[in-house]
């Protein structure tokens, strides 16, 4: 490992597979899930895209995947325009000191990133208090679970390609 400071930032480190496994990973990456699978259907509603990305970033941050954390955090910043809150997640990680709706989303996603994953009655109550409905909570669960899958592929097969 290089002995340079490493932190979670909004500067996307690209991802490169470990030496020797490139071709097989290319094939695998075509079937890897991502949070676009939670696209809203014909009906309106559901967790806004920025909050889906924020939940995904919280999971990737918790697992230690800098590539996915950055990619999702950038989407969250673009969609939410809440740069400071996203930076707090990047800097502080899980548990995250943020309050309010974004804090509730991050906290629940962080709990789902754990093994064993737990969405406690208290977490659910906090989400409901912050006006998340059943569809939004279901989307949050999906976003966290899909990222739990994808981040294990990126961490298990490669590393961020820092300069």
């Amino acid at each position: 490992m290089p002995d340079r400071p490493v932190a979670f930032t909004l500067d996307t480190p690209a991802w490169v597979p470990w030496p020797g496994i490139g071709a097989e990973v290319e094939a695998l990456l075509t079937t890897v899930p991502d949070t676009s699978l939670i696209a809203p259907g014909p009906k309106p509603g559901g967790l806004p895209q920025g909050e889906r990305a924020l939940a995904a970033a919280a999971v990737a941050r918790s697992l230690g995947c800098r590539h996915l954390t950055t990619a999702e955090a950038r989407q969250a910043v673009t969609a939410l325009k809440r740069d400071r809150e996203v930076e707090v997640l990047l800097e502080e990680g899980i548990p995250c000191p943020l309050t309010g709706r974004l804090g509730a989303v991050i906290s629940a996603a962080g709990a789902l990133a754990r093994s064993p994953a737990i969405l406690s009655a208290g977490s659910l109550q906090r989400l409901q208090d912050d006006k998340l409905d059943d569809q939004e909570i279901t989307d949050l669960i999906l976003s966290a679970a899909l990222t739990s899958w994808t981040a294990r592929i990126t961490l298990g097969l490669g590393r961020p390609s820092d300069p």
Binding site: V25, V32, A117, I153, L157
Partner: peptide, 28 residues
């Protein structure tokens, strides 16, 4: 083989996904 490893990590990721969706929905 590399092909086996790619499938292996996908299976590991999938069960991590599955466990979390089921835990989350059951709690809801």
């Amino acid at each position: 083989t590399n092909g086996g490893i790619a499938l292996l990590v996908d299976i590991i990721g999938f069960v991590n996904f599955q466990s979390r969706v089921v835990a989350g929905l059951r709690s809801s």
